[in-house]
Amino acid sequence: MRGLEEIGSHGGLSIPLSHGLDSTLTDGDSGPKFYDWLFECHGFWHNTALIVASLLFVVYLALQARQSFSKLLHGRSYIMISYYGCLWLVSLLNLAWCSLQAWECTPGKELAWNVLSLFTTSGMLFLEVSLLAFLLKGNHASGSQALTRTFVVSGLIVGLDILLKAIYLFGFGIPLFIDTNDNTHNMKWNLWVVHRLVLTAVYGFILYMYNSKWRERLPARPAFYKYTAIMFLLNGLALLACGITGNGAGFGFWLYSATIVCYHAFYLPLIYITFLADFFQEEDLNLENVYYSEMKDAGFFDADWE
């Protein structure tokens, strides 16, 4: 190699022997990018669980889309049509959020990550609030006025939530959605404590009603009770995690990350099973018998025999 360099220098030529190595590194830039996208930031298992779960649910919705559209057109339920459209939109947002986890740890992507996180979490909160309103009004309420009232109330609640989070993000510069080893922002964790406390209290109150004399005012569907119990447990764990993370406990940060993975990976399939699955799978003439059987199994008619 020294001989080649000497020949090049004597002949007035400069032979860049390292060009091949540089080009190899340049051509392989996609390798480090892929590694950072999948393995860095929160780690391989965290990113894989989110991506796989969200992608599988979107694929399932796509495979069922033709049958679902036909059912929606024949059913003519404004609530079901609107909720199904919202579910599709939020599922795509959630898939993007799960797939772009590397943005959270990439310099220069903080704004894009915060905006994406704000819209994704707000969309999921809108589904969560409107689901409670829909089920409390009856699973097949199809009037346009009922739909309008439900969406207006849900939209106002979510709008206030977006405004508060936007003030924290862009007004005070508090990184609400950047959770990489972050337990120093007390205002951030205080906000999440209040947020989870409200949700836990709501689900806890509904569970109390199910086990009290007022349970007849709630929908007589065991699926709704199971959904409420699951969300009460998840929000309770998240509340505990936010509280101890704000005090500097490392276990709290791990628990909080676990609840975030569970929420973004499994919440959308859960509300589909709770709210939409029966509508798409059962025939209209059999729905009344199905719900009567569920009410009987849940013990709602036991009082008639006493």
Rank of each mutant, 00 (worst) to 15 (best):
F151I: 05
R149W: 08
N186V: 15
L164I: 15
G173Q: 02
K165Y: 00
D182K: 14
L164N: 06
N181T: 14
F177W: 10
D161S: 15
K188P: 01
G171P: 05
I174Y: 04
F172E: 07
V152M: 06
V193E: 07
W189Q: 03
F151T: 00
L160R: 13
V193A: 11
N181F: 09
L163V: 15
L164S: 07
D182N: 14
V158F: 01
T184D: 12
L169S: 04
G171L: 05
N181G: 10
G159D: 10
V152K: 05
G173N: 04
L164Y: 13
T150P: 06
W189N: 03
N183K: 14
L169G: 03
F177Y: 11
L156R: 10
V152F: 05
I157W: 03
L169I: 01
I167C: 09
F172D: 00
F170N: 01
N183F: 15
W192H: 03
G171A: 05
V152H: 02
L191V: 05
P175V: 06
L164P: 02
V152S: 02
G159M: 09
V152Q: 08
F151N: 04
W189S: 03
K165R: 13
L163Y: 13
H185F: 11
L169C: 00
L160C: 15
L191A: 10
A166G: 07
